[in-house]
Design a protein around this nucleic acid. Structure first.
Lengths: 179, 179
DNA sequence: CCATGCATGTAATCGGTTACATGATTAC
DNA sequence: GTAATCATGTAACCGATTACATGCATGG
């Protein structure tokens, strides 16, 4: 399992950065498969430094309390080993599917709301993915973005074709139980 | 956010069950959006009982230490409210995309392995979804299964069409850096 | 001047998994 | 008889989020 520390190393492969920049790289460039909060980032970064997977470089002379981290060969080794050990699983926790699954209790309006909202979320995610600087990316990075785009577009497509049908089906069903 | 307790309530909507059966319902029928471990299930079940969202029914006379839980009106209310409050987001943590994203460090063989493994996982997930008793399901349940099928099939399709290309692209790239 | 973004960090808490402990029942 | 499945539960741990505390820099 990939942990935050490995993702941090992955973010630093692109070049040195401070904590804030690492966080932004992860939450934009890697948003389609991972995210971080500050409470996870800084402790993980400290541990990586302690074990020599990253080093702190540059001027402590700087007036700002801004730091600068760089990945070491040891860090690259660690990341490479992680890739080699990694499986191809995904852990999904879907509020959308859970809510729809149990929406019989709430009625067709609720299903309609959830569907519309999901379409909105998917469109937003697609827009974010398209906004990424695809030209500056490596082949593998671009591949992951295109994979993420493909599944989101398929989800949208499905909702467009089958969303209406499910709402009317539940509507009919709920009317039946009333009469 | 849907928690385990809500998912348990959702499993009990289908009818009374013991802890073990609840767990199996979740890990098969709801596998496409949620899973549970025993360490989460039993404490959550105890709390649900304590607050009256489920009741323990039937014979304590039974020789087995088998229990039987039933959802109450209060529990149904709680689940309905949760559906109404729910957003349409999904939280994905993908080892597959992370590993591919950083696979430059490991070489084309590693990418090929990850792709093949992912195809295997997707096929298995599709088989599991198709094995579900679709006839016995409500409209909304069936809808979530078909949604899950659609995105997995799209992922497979993408890998079939674009998987080969990425492996060769990285291969060419890595040979370039050698020469 | 004041909101927003940049920047670092900690403490409390959370939701959950892994592993363990135990034992009955069923199927080969 | 022995392996697998059914069945319940706890303790230790884990990875992470939320909220907070602090302060500088920038732009409207």
């Amino acid at each position: 399992m990939f942990e935050i520390s490995h993702i941090i190393l992955g973010a630093l492969v692109k070049g040195p950065a401070n904590g804030y920049q690492i966080r932004r790289r992860i939450n934009t460039d890697f948003a389609h498969f991972q995210s971080v909060s500050t409470g996870a980032l800084y402790p993980a970064l400290a541990k990586l430094k302690a074990r020599g997977a990253v080093i702190e470089v540059g001027a402590p002379t700087q007036s700002l309390e801004q730091r600068n981290f760089e990945i070491t060969d040891l860090g690259r080794d660690e990341l490479r080993r992680q890739v080699e050990m990694s499986g191809s699983g995904e852990r999904l926790k879907s509020d959308f599917l859970a809510a729809v699954n149990f929406a019989d209790l709430a009625g067709p309006d609720e299903v309609e709301r959830l569907l519309e909202e999901r379409v909105g979320v998917l469109n937003q995610e697609i827009r974010s993915l398209l906004a990424l600087p695809l030209r500056d990316m490596s082949n593998t990075e671009r591949f992951t973005v295109r994979y993420a785009l493909a599944v989101r577009r398929a989800a949208l497509e499905f909702l467009r074709h089958e969303g209406r049908a499910i709402v009317t089906a539940i509507d009919i069903e709920s009317r039946k139980s009333i009469s």
